[in-house]
Amino acid sequence: MSVAPAEDRAATREDAADTPPGRSFWKRNENLILGLASVIAFLAFWEFAVRAGWVNPLFTSSPSRILATGYEMFADGSIYPDLWVSTQEFVFGYGLAVIIGVPLGILMGWYTRLNALLDPFVNALYATPRIALMPLVIIWFGIDMSAKVAIIFLATVFPIIISTMTGVRTMERDYVRVARSFGASDRQLFATVALPSSIPHILTGLRLGLGHALIGIVVGEMYGASAGIGYMMQTAGATFQTDKVMVGIIIIAGAGMALTQVLKMIEARFDIWRPDHHA
């Protein structure tokens, strides 16, 4: 008898996906078009309100002023030192949090004793607004870059630890049994079951951590710094340079969105085995 398994289900899935014929360009991109339209309408109204004299640009700035100021800051290079300082703080603080948080979360998920030992600290610090630690950090590290790296690290590391730990702890017992049945050692069980099944959780942790890291940059630099985007915004704000403050906000928001997008792409790359993924 020839083999004719029911593979149809798998095959039709790909054919039927996306773009059913007959749907117009408008229907397919409705959300994108609506989103874009509302943003453009908002910017236009803002600009118009300033030009018509309804609001004082000293308080509200305007899209054209922000654009001009932003262009100027990049053109004369005055923004680069601040951008560079903040980037370094982010890279070191966030990087350190990933390098320490992911392995620690894995270990805490894997070894219940270690979890019992560290859990009180992790939970207490996770519940504390990390910004409350800023005065302590300044006592310890002063106001140079290391203080900001420390606060970004503290802001970021706990969500990463907790998500990673959850991922390892919630791995399916059935898969553990299969691995054991095939004679997997602890190390092999870790590499072939614990790690792959916790990657979605780890990436969620990285995404949560990202938001905290950006808060850490801005608040850390506002609290005590001599350079950086947050510092630039702080001094600009103190001297009513609303346009510059707005440029800072846009840079931080843009960085947040871009980095989130990068993480989403990494997530999609790791998620191809999931039944409900939409790469």
Partner: peptide, 25 residues
Amino acid sequence: AMVFQQDSLFPWYTVTRNVTYGLEL
């Protein structure tokens, strides 16, 4: 070697890697 009940395949591995699992270990 055990053939487990359904859905004991590792969802993160392709068919090939599921099959080679025991040998790779």
